[in-house]
Simulated scan of single mutants.
Amino acid sequence: MENTKPWVKPALEFGPLILFFAVFMLYRNDTVTIAGESYGGFILATLAFIPALMLTTAIQWRITGKLAPMQVATLVLVIVFGGLSVWLNDPRFFKLKPTIIYLLFAAILGVGLMLRRNWLGAVLSEALPMDAEGWRKLTLRMALFFVALAIANELVWRNLSDSTWVWFKTFGLPVLLFAFLLGNAKLYRDHALPAKDDAQP
């Protein structure tokens, strides 16, 4: 996306989520009948979210010519669990989706650690150049962080209201991720690779 405008990338990444939030807030106290079936705001928001994510993912692929494995996994799980929620008119399937995604990411990172493979660095090394030890530490921390997010998601959707979960999903999870990345700033500095100019004799 080097040649695209700066707002395009965040719009594509967060657009479907903002749409989900907007539709839910608009219809959270109402029901809409479609083909003889009554749907609440949560299911309507899910119904809007699925094609929106498919569209933005297709646009990202069209612009960049590639998709990250996490993007593909997220899209597949959204289609499967979101589709089940709409088909069965049951929000629980869609609420489970973040838990499964975070546990999947944690498992992938954990397997990478056991195999001594720097899978995280392979994806992020251009944006965040670090030595091998730095990537090992960050991978371990991120795996544990994803497990914590999965637990948090389970606690919220099983014990609190739909509205609380939607707020948590739309704003809480991104804020937690931002705080995690910011909280590891010292690790980035301590294990940063020397700049190319500095490496010259």
Rank of each mutant, 00 (worst) to 15 (best):
A106W: 00
A106D: 02
A106K: 08
A106E: 02
A107D: 07
A107P: 06
A107I: 04
A107R: 01
I108W: 00
I108D: 00
I108K: 08
I108V: 09
L109Q: 10
G110H: 00
G110A: 06
G110P: 08
V111D: 09
V111L: 03
V111Q: 03
G112P: 05
G112R: 14
G112L: 01
G112T: 05
L113S: 04
L113T: 10
L113G: 08
L113F: 00
L113I: 12
M114N: 12
M114E: 13
M114A: 13
M114L: 13
L115W: 10
L115M: 14
R116T: 11
R116K: 15
R117N: 06
R117V: 04
R117C: 05
R117G: 06
R117M: 09
N118S: 08
N118T: 05
N118Q: 11
W119M: 10
W119C: 02
W119V: 11
W119D: 12
L120R: 11
L120V: 03
L120S: 07
G121M: 06
G121I: 10
G121K: 13
G121Q: 10
G121S: 07
A122V: 10
A122R: 15
A122S: 12
A122I: 05
A122T: 08
V123R: 14
V123D: 11
V123F: 14
L124F: 08
L124K: 15
L124Q: 14
S125I: 13
S125K: 14
E126K: 12
E126M: 09
E126C: 08
E126W: 04
A127M: 15
A127D: 15
L128H: 11
L128F: 15
L128Q: 15
P129E: 15
M130L: 10
M130A: 11
M130G: 08
M130K: 13
M130Y: 08
M130S: 13
D131Y: 01
D131L: 06
D131E: 09
A132P: 12
E133L: 12
E133T: 14
G134T: 15
G134K: 09
G134Q: 12
G134E: 03
W135C: 05
W135I: 07
W135E: 03
W135K: 05
W135P: 02
W135H: 03
R136H: 11
R136V: 04
R136A: 02
K137M: 05
K137S: 02
L138E: 02
L138F: 04
L138P: 04
L138S: 01
L138C: 01
T139W: 03
T139E: 02
T139C: 00
T139M: 03
T139Q: 09
T139S: 06
L140W: 00
L140A: 07
L140D: 01
R141N: 01
R141K: 08
R141M: 07
